[in-house]
């Protein structure tokens, strides 16, 4: 009996030590990012010392004051506007599609779901160039509106997670409401939506985050229109070969500024995130 107890204690100590080591490995790059964001710049992108010798806040202040080449405040506002607009549009599109496929029964349901499944297997940015030309044809290229449309245009194809959630709401609730004479429109707004707060929050948050982290679509859509860049693309540009020595620490500062709110949002929504992924995965 005593033997098994010591064995358990040893196992516990070992697991804690192991977890600590892993945590250090995982947090090391994050800590390095934080340290670099407070480093004095002159030593270029590749300093000799791992831990900075001189500390400063100037990387953060210069992000907002020296705006002639890299207009961080403007990019920040661009991203905020695009993120808010596209998250509203994306949420509407995703929830409507998911609701239709989950709760409504109509002839085209299965074929449409199959078509969406197949469309999803094409590499996403294969059509990027074509999207750019379509936007150009309707006179929207290089505008923030076009970016909103690009981020939310494919939203209907990501209905799986929300559908997985709607599937878990018992059908009997709908039937009862229908017996009381409610139309399907009323059921959607007055019964399903109030029950679906988690999935609404999840969809809003994920779609709000994506403009902050994408740099591919925005680079194809905006090309050289610096004024309409988003933070991700702007920061990405800071690490181009000709800029990296002067701007590396400022990149780190900007990255910290975006990463903090996103991390907080993500930690808040991890519960919804997991249930969304697993529900979506298991139920299709």
């Amino acid at each position: 009996m005593k033997n098994s107890k010591t064995k358990r204690t040893v196992a516990n100590v070992v697991s804690h030590v192991f977890l600590t080591i892993l945590s250090i490995i995982w947090l090391l790059p994050v800590v390095w990012l934080l340290m670099q964001s407070f480093r004095e710049t002159p030593t270029g992108a590749f300093p000799k010392a791992i831990i900075p010798t001189t500390w400063t806040l100037s990387n953060y202040t210069r992000l907002f004051t020296e705006t002639d080449l890299f207009n961080f405040p403007r990019w920040f506002m661009n991203t905020l506007v695009v993120a808010i607009a596209s998250c509203i549009l994306t949420t509407i599109l995703t929830l409507l599609t998911a609701y239709a496929f989950s709760r409504l029964r109509f002839k085209a349901r299965k074929p449409l779901m199959n078509v969406i499944l197949i469309l999803g297997m094409f590499p996403g940015f294969m059509s990027m160039i074509a999207v750019y030309h379509i936007l150009k044809a309707i006179g929207l290229a290089q505008s923030l509106l076009s970016l909103v449309l690009v981020y939310s245009g494919g939203a209907a194809m990501g209905y799986y997670v929300a559908k997985g959630f709607f599937d878990t709401i018992p059908a009997s609730i709908d039937e009862a409401a229908m017996l009381d004479g409610a139309t399907k429109n009323q059921i959607f707004w007055q019964i399903t939506m109030p029950l679906s707060k988690p999935i609404v929050i999840y969809t809003v948050l994920t779609s709000f985050i994506s403009p902050w982290v994408d740099f591919i679509f925005v680079s194809v859509i905006m090309k050289d229109n610096y004024q309409n860049y988003t933070v991700a693309l702007g920061l990405y540009q800071m690490l181009a070969r000709e800029n990296i020595d002067a701007y590396f620490t400022r990149f780190c500062a900007g990255a910290v500024l975006i990463a903090i709110p996103i991390t907080l949002l993500f930690i808040k929504m991890q519960k919804y995130y997991v249930s969304g992924i697993t529900a979506g995965g298991a139920k299709g």
């Binding site: 947090l27 982290v213 991700a232 920061l235 975006i258 990463a259 991390t263």
Partner: peptide
């Protein structure tokens, strides 16, 4: 989870 939350491009 912190490491997932940080944007990949960063």
């Amino acid at each position: 989870i912190i490491t997932i939350a940080i944007p990949q491009f960063v």
